[in-house]
């Protein structure tokens, strides 16, 4: 699998790591059931602290993209490929909304208002 980190990105590093993996899952770099490289490997290759990597992996687990399994390491969850693409677009939408001065609640209200 190929991971990309954008050095010009101003988001916190753990979000960037999560974003890189989310994108890899969305682009089919790793399919559901595939095992991810270990957090230590990821941290060495990306040049990011291992705790930062773990924080990014945990947030992806909370999103339902990854599964932490004892003895099998971190694997890509079932259906994660579709979900991560959608998740990416939601995050983009939130960033765009924030840039235009809308809060998260405004956005939720907007979605609710759509019939």
């Amino acid at each position: 699998m190929l991971l990309r980190l954008n050095q010009a990105d101003t988001r916190p590093l753990h979000e960037q790591v999560a974003g890189a993996i989310r994108r890899a899952v969305a682009e089919g770099e790793c399919r559901p059931g595939d095992r991810l490289p270990s957090a230590r490997d990821l941290s060495q290759a990306l040049g990011v602290n291992v705790n930062t990597v773990l924080r990014g992996l945990r947030s992806l687990r909370d999103e339902g993209l990854l599964e932490f399994r004892r003895g099998r390491g971190v694997t890509v969850a079932e259906g994660a490929d579709q979900r991560s693409g959608l998740q990416d677009r939601v995050l983009e939408l939130m960033a765009e909304a924030a840039r235009l001065g809308y809060s998260r609640t405004d956005l939720i209200e907007m979605i609710r208002g759509i019939p």
Partner: peptide, 10 residues
């Protein structure tokens, strides 16, 4: 420019 790429395989 400005991107860091890593590749993992097994």
């Amino acid at each position: 420019e400005g991107q860091r790429l890593v590749w993992f395989s097994r």
